[in-house]
């Protein structure tokens, strides 16, 4: 068990964005988090990595209660988070972006910064300004920054949004490659990515966990179909 939440809740001025969620992640698994727009997916992962504080409930990471820890301390414990809306250092070089990501994890290292660029297919662009990359490449850089941190838990918020078909295929291969070593929590709208990469899927609806299971089970679940998949 690498991550557990108990009764995790977040209200915004009366709006129940996340409502007493109990959630566990096994070490090494790839978990997809799906749900309709506004279901609270981004809020939920923001609570995990400490971008926003919870209204109530607790988060345990690797056996330690991290509910009160600020975001930067959680990241240093081995979490990495990539933003839904691309968030890179646009005014700095591509290499500097991954270097900054790798350097914050002093003491732990897996791949070197430039390896991370290789793995997402951005090698040879080290000297470009990150802001000059195309939108899809900026998304890939964001993923590379996550990899460069060599995290134990990698949280990806809609990583494939805006990627081309070829890049999505590369992304699927990358996730399968990481699986086993790195625990991955993936917010995803692209069903083919979910079906082909995730070990298990959790469905969030109105801030609550609606269902959990293997991709096939979720695909067949009538409640999920009603809430989200349509008639699938």
């Amino acid at each position: 068990m690498i991550l557990t939440t108990k009764g995790l809740t977040r209200h915004f001025h009366g709006l129940k964005a996340v409502q007493s969620v109990d959630f566990t992640l096994q070490k090494g698994e790839v978990r997809a988090l799906i749900g309709p727009n506004g279901a609270g997916k981004t809020t939920f992962v923001s609570l995990l990595c400490g971008r926003i504080p919870p209204t109530s409930g607790s988060v345990t990471f690797d056996g330690a209660d991290i509910t009160a820890l600020p975001a930067h301390r959680r990241i240093r414990m081995g979490m990495a988070y990539t933003f839904q809306i691309t968030s890179i250092f646009a005014g700095l070089s591509v290499a500097e972006n991954v270097r900054l990501a790798a350097r914050s994890q002093a003491g732990r290292h897996g791949s070197t910064p430039l390896d991370a660029l290789d793995r997402v297919g951005l090698s040879g662009r080290d000297d470009m300004l990150a802001g000059d990359l195309s939108y899809g490449h900026q998304r890939l850089l964001e993923i590379a920054m996550g990899l460069a941190q060599s995290p134990r838990l990698l949280i990806l918020d809609e990583p494939t949004q805006g990627l081309s078909d070829g890049e999505i295929a590369g992304f699927k291969a990358l996730i399968r490659d990481l699986a086993g070593d790195t625990t991955i929590l993936l917010i995803e709208h692209n069903m083919s990515v979910v079906m082909e990469t995730a070990d298990r899927v959790s469905v969030l609806n109105f801030g609550e966990i609606l269902a959990e299971g293997t991709p096939a089970e979720i695909h067949a679940n009538p409640a999920v179909q009603a809430a989200y998949l349509g008639t699938g």
């Binding site: 600020p70 930067h72 990241i75 933003f83 968030s87 890179i88 250092f89 990501a101 920054m145």
Partner: peptide, 8 residues
């Protein structure tokens, strides 16, 4: 972004 890379 810097904060979410683990910098205080």
């Amino acid at each position: 972004r810097a904060r979410m890379l683990g910098y205080d």
